[in-house]
Every structure is written in structure tokens, then in C-alpha cells.
């Protein structure tokens, strides 16, 4: 597969996943504000901090009001990580590889983009934001489903999954981190309905509440961390994402598991084995925020490795004439 094509597929997939996760952040906050106890005000700044774009936001918008944050994260085309910007970039990438992806994938992405673009500035964006963010999540799921059902599970598909899993792992760590920013842990809140509310919001942001309940029943923060970070089977858990990212990476290179030929293989394998054998006590011992931070840094390292191994366009070594 062409390096450029692989690069486009990988980023198309990451950008769609990113758009979906922004919708998750916003959607959950919208939901949570309705359940806030009296005297507690809505908090929107943590969302911006979670995405890592807080400097750009403060400079251009100032106050972190609901309207400002939603506009910035959803429709602002000057914010490269807004939902609309992500989808526009994903669509440009898809357009460059239209003959590689299935036409159903292109159609779904096209509809997805048009839906968001046409909502920007409309009455619907102001009146029914929750329903809109649910539509964004569903449109992203549809794209993934359509990809799985219509594209051969070969190299291109594996690059798409690799990108999606790296992006999702990163975003799940940020969803978990939201709790850190929303309220500094206060002993008096632990175990109160308010604490429960916040942890259930975190789980809901990852569509994890129901699956969590099946696994653990009661909400305890240790279990929530365990579930979102270390669960093997839950599709948005970081561990699960890394397992599947690694499978795709090895399917692409043909490198046997447990060995490496490239920097991408090696970094991925190291993170995978750490997560395979990690326990929630390790996470708590390190400090949740610090632990999440280190995972993000390592995921970035993997992404750099993928770029170096497959996409870097430096002059190729001269091969002997055939």
C-alpha cells in the first residue's frame, strides 16, 4: 500500500474517532448539569482542559460559558480539534483514498460531515444539543460498522483500526482525567451521591456505565479506574484498545508477537505488556493523573513510531536496478 494512502486512512480514522470523543465529552457534561445538586454550578472549563486546547480557547473566547465551550469544541473551524474540523479533515483524507476505501464508507463519512456542517449555526444546535451529540456518536459508530462490513480486513483496514485504537485509548485516558479537573478530590464528597454522579458521568462519557454495572455493580472509584484503564474486553478500555492496535500493527508488518522490527512494534509491545500485567493499585500508587499522563506520552511515542516506520517521506535508499 502507498505510504501516503496508509497515512490518509490512518488519519481519517483517528479524526473520526476524535470527533466522536469530543461529542462524548460535551454530551456528558450537558447531561450532568441537569443532576447537579443545588448550589453547584456547571463546570465547562475542565472539558477544554481535557482536550489540551485550553490556551487557544482562553485567548479567543475568554469565559468558559456553556455556549462558548460548545461552539469552540463543536463548530469552530479555527480549532483544528473541533468536531467540524476533524470531520472536514477526515473527509479530505478519505477523498484522497476513495479508490481504497469502500464507497459505502465514503458515503457515510460524507453524510456525517454534511450533518454536522449543516447543523452549525442552526436552531437545532442551540435547542437540542444533547440529541445532536448523540447523533455524532452514532454516525461515528456507523462509519466503523460500515468499514468493518464493507472493506476487506487487509492492510488498509488495519491502518484504520490502528489509528482508531490509538486515538480512542488516548481519549479514554482524557475522559478519566476529567474527574481530576472537575473537582479536586475532597474527602467529604467521597461516597456521596455527588461523587457517584460524577463517576457515573465519566463512565457514561465512555458509554461504559451499563457494562461497568454488569461487571462490578456498585460504583467505586477504584473499579471505575480498573474498568476504563485495564479491562481486557470493554471496547473503550485503554488495555483493550492497545491489544487491538497491536494486532493491527502486527498484521501490517507481519512481525511475530513478542518480537519487534521497528520502533513502532517495540513501543507498542512495551505498553501492551505493561497494561497486561498492571493492577489498579499500581495506578493509584503512581497517582491517577500522573499515570494517565504517562500513558498519553507513550501513545504519542507509538504514533511517532508509526509515522517513522510507514509514512515518513524522506528520500528512499537507492536500490539496485532490477
Amino acid at each position: 500500500m502507498l505510504s501516503r494512502v496508509a497515512d490518509s486512512i490512518y488519519w481519517m480514522s483517528r479524526q473520526i474517532e476524535r470527533a466522536e470523543n469530543v461529542a462524548r465529552f460535551v454530551g456528558v457534561n450537558l447531561h450532568m448539569r441537569l443532576d447537579l445538586p443545588p448550589g453547584v454550578t456547571e463546570q465547562w472549563m475542565p472539558l477544554v482542559i481535557t482536550t489540551g486546547d485550553d490556551a487557544a480557547f482562553s485567548e479567543r473566547y475568554g469565559a468558559a460559558t456553556r455556549e462558548n465551550v460548545i461552539q469552540f469544541l463543536t463548530f469552530d473551524t479555527d480549532n483544528p480539534n473541533s468536531i467540524l474540523s476533524c470531520l472536514r479533515a477526515a473527509r479530505e483524507n478519505a477523498r484522497g483514498v476513495r479508490e481504497i476505501i469502500s464507497s459505502e464508507m465514503w458515503e457515510q463519512l460524507n453524510k456525517f460531515y454534511l450533518m454536522v456542517r449543516d447543523t452549525a449555526g442552526s436552531a437545532r444546535a442551540r435547542e437540542l444539543p444533547e440529541a445532536f451529540f448523540a447523533d455524532v456518536r452514532m454516525a461515528s459508530h456507523l462509519f466503523v460498522g460500515v468499514s468493518d462490513a464493507t472493506m476487506s480486513h487487509g492492510e488498509g483496514w488495519n491502518f484504520a483500526r490502528l489509528g482508531r485504537m490509538i486515538e480512542r485509548a488516548d481519549k479514554t485516558t482524557r475522559i478519566l482525567d476529567m474527574k481530576y479537573f472537575i473537582l479536586l478530590p475532597s474527602l467529604s464528597d467521597v461516597g456521596t451521591p455527588f461523587d457517584d454522579l460524577q463517576w457515573s458521568a465519566v463512565l457514561r462519557a465512555a458509554s461504559a456505565l451499563e457494562m461497568y454495572r454488569k461487571r462490578y455493580g456498585r460504583l467505586t472509584w477504584e473499579h471505575v479506574i480498573d474498568f476504563l484503564l485495564l479491562d481486557h474486553d470493554f471496547p473503550r478500555a485503554v488495555h483493550h484498545c492497545v491489544i487491538h492496535a497491536q494486532q493491527s500493527l502486527h498484521a501490517i508488518t507481519g512481525t511475530p508477537f513478542g518480537t519487534f522490527r521497528s520502533i513502532a512494534d517495540r513501543r507498542m509491545g512495551q505498553l501492551r505488556s505493561d497494561l497486561d500485567f498492571a493492577m489498579v493499585e499500581d495506578v493509584i500508587g503512581t497517582g491517577l493523573h500522573e499515570y494517565l499522563d504517562s500513558i498519553q506520552v507513550r501513545l504519542n511515542g507509538i504514533a511517532e513510531g508509526v509515522f517513522e516506520t510507514f509514512f515518513a517521506m524522506r528520500p528512499a535508499p537507492v536500490l539496485s536496478a532490477a
Binding site: 502507498l2 505510504s3 501516503r4 517521506m313 528520500p315
Partner: peptide
């Protein structure tokens, strides 16, 4: 394959395309 100019290069007297698995004639 659909290629752009930047996907191709000349080496060893042949035109080759950059792929994820190396260069192909």
C-alpha cells in the same frame, strides 16, 4: 493504485512507488 507525484521516485533507472513495505517498480 492512484498515485500523486510525491508517491513516485526514480531510482536505479526505474520509476518506483513508495509503499508501506518499501519501493515497488
Amino acid at each position: 493504485e492512484l498515485v500523486e507525484g510525491r508517491d513516485l521516485l526514480v531510482s536505479g533507472g526505474l520509476v518506483r512507488v513508495r509503499t508501506t513495505q518499501g519501493l515497488e517498480r
